[in-house]
Simulated assay, not measured.
Amino acid sequence: MTLFTTGEVSKMTGLTKRSIRYYSNLDLLKAKKNDKGQLVLLKSDLEKIVQILAAKMTGYKLKDLIERQPSLVVIKNDISQMIADLENVLFHLELVASEENLIKNIKLLQNYNTRYLRKRGD
Rank of each mutant, 00 (worst) to 15 (best):
N105Q: 13
L72H: 11
E8K: 13
L65I: 14
L15W: 02
K17N: 11
K76W: 04
Q38L: 13
Q81H: 15
T58L: 06
E67K: 15
A54Y: 07
R118D: 11
I103D: 05
S71D: 15
I52W: 01
D122I: 11
N77E: 15
Y116R: 02
S19Q: 09
S19T: 01
M57W: 13
Y22T: 04
Q38T: 05
Y112N: 08
L72F: 11
A31K: 02
T114V: 09
L53W: 02
T2Y: 14
T2E: 10
E94T: 04
F91R: 06
Y22C: 02
L53E: 03
L108P: 07
L109H: 00
L108G: 05
K11E: 15
I52Y: 01
E47G: 07
G59Y: 06
L41C: 03
D45F: 01
R68Q: 12
A84W: 11
I49H: 00
L86G: 09
D45G: 01
K11H: 14
I83Q: 10
S44T: 11
V73C: 10
D35F: 02
N88W: 03
D27F: 12
A31C: 06
L95R: 15
G121F: 06
K17S: 08
E8M: 14
M12L: 15
L108W: 01
Y116G: 04
L102P: 02
H92S: 03
E94S: 09
K76N: 14
I103E: 11
Y23C: 05
L53M: 09
S19E: 03
Y112Q: 06
T114Y: 13
S19W: 00
S71W: 12
L41T: 00
L29H: 02
V74R: 15
Q38N: 15
R68I: 15
L102F: 05
G121W: 03
V9W: 02
F91Q: 05
L65H: 06
K56I: 10
L95S: 05
P70G: 14
M12T: 13
A84N: 14
V50Q: 15
A55L: 03
V74N: 08
E8A: 15
L39P: 00
N88F: 03
L86Q: 11
D85G: 08
M12K: 12
E47H: 13
Q110M: 00
R115D: 00
Q38S: 09
T58N: 04
E94H: 07
V9R: 01
D85F: 05
K43R: 12
Q38G: 07
K107A: 12
V50G: 13
R21C: 08
K119I: 03
M82P: 05
I103L: 11
L26T: 07
G7E: 07
K76E: 15
I79N: 04
K119A: 08
E87N: 11
L108A: 03
S19P: 00
E67F: 13
